[in-house]
Simulated assay, not measured.
Amino acid sequence: MLLLTKEDIKKVFTMKDAIEADKEAFKIYTNKESEVPLRTNIQAPKEEGTMLFMPGYVEGLDCAGLKIVSVFPKNAEKGKPVIPATVLLMDGITGEVSSVLDGTYITQIRTGAASGAAIDILAKKDAKKGALIGTGGQACAQLEAMITARDLEEVKIFSRNPKKVEEFIEKAKIELSEYKTKFVPASSADEAVEDADVIVTATTSTVPLFDGNKIKKGATISAVGSYQPHMHEFDGTTLKRSDKIYFDSTDAVLSEAGDILTPLAEGIVTKEDFTGELGQVINGSIAGRENDEEIILFKTVGIAVQDIVTAKKIYDKAVENNIGLEW
């Protein structure tokens, strides 16, 4: 069994690799070439936390896996990851655990890569301005995915805590110094999104973050943060103005995402307004962006096949490069 830390993974796996892994994962999922039960969600009310158990199996890659991931916001006060996780990768032929990987980092890069995949496939080719709302544990990977998928000149960043925005930008300037994108603070979410070609939201907000009327024509939105029925990152106006609406998994989104469930219940949108899954665009069964005026929304809650495909790609590269600790 191979143990792989964050540092091991970073030696062999880039954000570009992660985006390609997610594209493959979405295609596998949509083509029904995987077994991915809806995740088990256990609440920890005392700590305002959530524990998620995400199993899956991909026969075509001869592997299976389980990710155990938690969302414990109070961890930030303790200097611990807000979204700690572990991934177990299993050999699909023998059923043995072949690797234990740093799931916190895998969660960060594969979730960032989901936005990267959506932006790469759906955003305007000449997109130059971005907006990132949220500066938590997901933010850096989301930012890197945005500027990997498109050569953005500028990304405006907003969080309710201006100090966190400043600290995040300073950190991003160091960690993403190889990119030429300018990172600037925004005074409000509305200011961040109003001129953006690409928008990523990565928060656990229970109320919409911005006025959907501020979204300009041609924008692509990747909404990442809402993964429970009471969470809402965008408003009904954003949905109504979106020309196309894609999901990572229709079943998962319609089971979990308050962003979609509440407007559905209120009659703001119907299921007929949903275009389909990103995997369908990838496999060519439905269209993606058809002109530069379309507002396109991608909603992702995350599916286990992303973790499994990403872990398998990392594991294969680690073995090839003799990286990691055998146990």
Rank of each mutant, 00 (worst) to 15 (best):
N291M: 07
T275C: 06
A192E: 01
I42K: 10
Y179R: 11
D243C: 11
K129Q: 09
G258S: 12
L3H: 12
T5P: 05
L297H: 11
L122R: 07
I157W: 09
L239Y: 06
I147H: 06
I314S: 10
N291A: 10
S177F: 07
E266Y: 01
T206K: 15
F158W: 14
T135E: 07
V281F: 12
C140E: 11
S159C: 07
E35K: 03
I19H: 05
I119P: 02
E24S: 10
A287K: 15
S115L: 10
L132K: 12
A123R: 01
G302D: 01
A196G: 00
D8M: 05
S187A: 14
A114E: 10
I68V: 15
K78Y: 04
A117V: 05
K271T: 15
A149V: 05
V224L: 14
N291L: 12
S115A: 15
V281M: 08
D316Q: 12
E153T: 06
L297R: 08
V36D: 08
A311H: 01
A219E: 07
L264E: 00
D316N: 15
E194L: 08
I199R: 01
I245G: 02
T238D: 03
Q43I: 14
A223N: 02
A44T: 14
A149F: 09
K163C: 01
P73F: 13
A25E: 04
F168A: 05
A252Y: 05
D102V: 08
I9H: 00
D91S: 07
I174Q: 15
V82M: 13
K217W: 00
L122P: 04
K67D: 07
G276H: 07
N75F: 07
D22K: 04
A25P: 04
K80I: 00
I28K: 00
I303L: 15
K23H: 00
I308Q: 03
L3D: 03
I199E: 04
A311L: 00
G136F: 10
K244I: 08
L52Y: 13
E167S: 07
V165I: 13
D8I: 03
L101I: 15
V193A: 12
K182Y: 08
L3K: 12
G103Y: 08
S285Y: 13
T201N: 04
A189M: 13
T104I: 15
L3A: 10
S226C: 06
K46Q: 12
S255M: 03
M1W: 04
I106K: 00
D235P: 03
E256V: 10
M90C: 07
G288I: 13
L325W: 14
K23W: 07
E96T: 08
K27F: 02
C63M: 13
H230M: 06
A145Y: 00
A189H: 08
K67L: 09
A287I: 01
T300E: 09
P162C: 03
K317P: 05
E175Q: 14
S115V: 10
F183M: 01
I282E: 02
G79P: 11
E33S: 10
L2V: 08
V87L: 14
A257H: 06
E7Q: 12
V12L: 04
S249E: 05
S249H: 06
S249K: 09
V309P: 03
